[in-house]
Simulated scan of single mutants.
Amino acid sequence: MIKRLWANRSKAKASLPHTEGIPPENVPEHVAIIMDGNGRWAKRRGLPRMAGHHSGMKTVKRITIEANRLGVKYLTLYAFSTENWKRPKAEVDFLMKLPQQFLEIELEDLIANNVQVKMMGHREDLPPHTLSAVEEAISKTAGNSGLVLNFALNYGSRKEMLETVQAIAADVREGKLTPEQINDELFSQRLLSGELPDPDLLIRTSGELRLSNFMLWQLAYSELWFTDVYWPEFTEQHFHEAIEEYGRRARRYGGV
């Protein structure tokens, strides 16, 4: 039943005009999204910020389904940054409950549709209920071979890079590595995203034009796409627009 619901929705989407004209070779392998604007979306409607975060959770499902249907292999979502702890405690507590709520509702869907859940972030600061929900999803989907849904949760790129440098320096001190062995490939593999390829496309919603400490090393040659649309309003159509724009760009990686 669950798998059929996803399949029916995908079939319906396939018939819409905006799904045409995206050749498979133009679909990025790895899409990363900074999901921004939940609070402002709610404020404009006279709602509490938490209502925006709850609505944004529904967008996560819709875009995950569409990414899976289009053939995206990796979808990384910036769910909570190391800087987000500065927000009011009530909002932080609500945000820490969202992964548990989302996975309780959607985990069977994800399993049925061969989606593999991963997480990159600093686990030590997460509440037990948040961490246990995520780790259960990771465990139960570990054998899946479809779309990798990677949550950046309590993630900060500067902290990630500093800890990677410290770990590499410790290995050099202990004789496990020589300075000459340190290169781009080694450094990338030691990052929290080491199992994933670098993002091909970064999407940021809500009109902000910055990276906000997100995958600073990994995004060095990613294509960037920004929209004024708030995350709760971000639709499959917007996702297609980003991918279509990505397909029109020439990626030269510093070459001619």
Score class of each variant (00 low, 15 high):
residue 173 R to W: 06
residue 144 N to T: 00
residue 244 E to V: 15
residue 93 D to M: 03
residue 92 V to D: 01
residue 170 A to P: 00
residue 72 V to G: 08
residue 101 Q to H: 09
residue 170 A to F: 04
residue 81 S to A: 04
residue 21 G to P: 08
residue 249 R to W: 10
residue 17 P to Y: 02
residue 91 E to S: 01
residue 41 W to T: 10
residue 111 I to K: 12
residue 88 P to F: 01
residue 132 S to V: 05
residue 241 E to R: 03
residue 19 T to M: 12
residue 217 W to S: 04
residue 178 T to F: 09
residue 241 E to W: 00
residue 185 E to S: 15
residue 227 T to F: 05
residue 206 S to K: 03
residue 217 W to F: 13
residue 251 R to T: 08
residue 90 A to N: 06
residue 72 V to R: 04
residue 177 L to G: 10
residue 230 Y to S: 12
residue 119 M to H: 13
residue 16 L to P: 00
residue 163 E to W: 07
residue 101 Q to S: 11
residue 22 I to F: 04
residue 199 P to V: 06
residue 231 W to Y: 04
residue 41 W to I: 05
residue 162 L to F: 09
residue 62 R to N: 11
residue 143 G to L: 13
residue 141 T to Y: 08
residue 162 L to K: 03
residue 197 P to V: 01
residue 254 G to V: 06
residue 139 S to F: 01
residue 189 Q to P: 06
residue 79 A to N: 05
residue 28 P to M: 05
residue 156 G to Y: 08
residue 238 H to E: 11
residue 177 L to E: 02
residue 71 G to Y: 13
residue 213 N to G: 06
residue 46 G to T: 06
residue 90 A to T: 03
residue 249 R to I: 09
residue 175 G to H: 04
residue 139 S to Y: 01
residue 239 F to S: 01
residue 86 K to I: 09
residue 35 M to G: 06
residue 65 I to T: 03
residue 168 I to V: 14
residue 154 N to D: 13
residue 230 Y to H: 13
residue 115 V to S: 07
residue 122 H to F: 15
residue 108 E to F: 09
residue 239 F to G: 00
residue 103 L to A: 06
residue 54 H to T: 04
residue 245 E to D: 15
residue 180 E to H: 05
residue 122 H to Q: 15
residue 113 N to R: 13
residue 57 M to G: 08
residue 71 G to K: 14
residue 21 G to L: 00
residue 92 V to M: 01
residue 111 I to P: 03
residue 55 S to G: 08
residue 222 S to A: 15
residue 163 E to K: 08
residue 50 M to V: 12
residue 253 Y to F: 15
residue 105 I to K: 15
residue 212 S to P: 05
residue 172 V to Q: 08
residue 189 Q to N: 12
residue 110 L to Y: 13
residue 68 N to V: 08
residue 198 D to K: 04
residue 1 M to R: 12
residue 12 A to N: 10
residue 69 R to H: 07
residue 113 N to K: 10
residue 2 I to W: 05
residue 157 S to Y: 01
residue 209 L to N: 02
residue 35 M to V: 02
residue 160 E to R: 03
residue 252 R to V: 14
residue 135 E to H: 07
residue 30 H to L: 07
residue 39 G to R: 13
residue 230 Y to F: 11
residue 98 L to R: 01
residue 222 S to C: 06
residue 229 V to F: 01
residue 20 E to F: 14
residue 98 L to N: 02
residue 224 L to D: 05
residue 2 I to P: 10
residue 214 F to Q: 01
residue 198 D to T: 03
residue 170 A to V: 05
residue 55 S to E: 14
residue 9 R to L: 13
residue 68 N to T: 15
residue 243 I to Q: 00
residue 246 Y to M: 02
residue 83 E to P: 01
residue 248 R to I: 01
residue 142 A to M: 09
residue 126 L to H: 01
residue 158 R to H: 09
residue 83 E to W: 00
residue 112 A to I: 11
residue 250 A to D: 08
residue 145 S to I: 02
residue 144 N to F: 07
residue 222 S to G: 12
residue 134 V to F: 04
residue 211 L to I: 14
residue 184 D to I: 03
residue 237 Q to E: 13
residue 213 N to Y: 10
residue 59 T to Q: 05
residue 4 R to M: 12
residue 24 P to A: 07
residue 118 K to N: 08
residue 124 E to A: 15
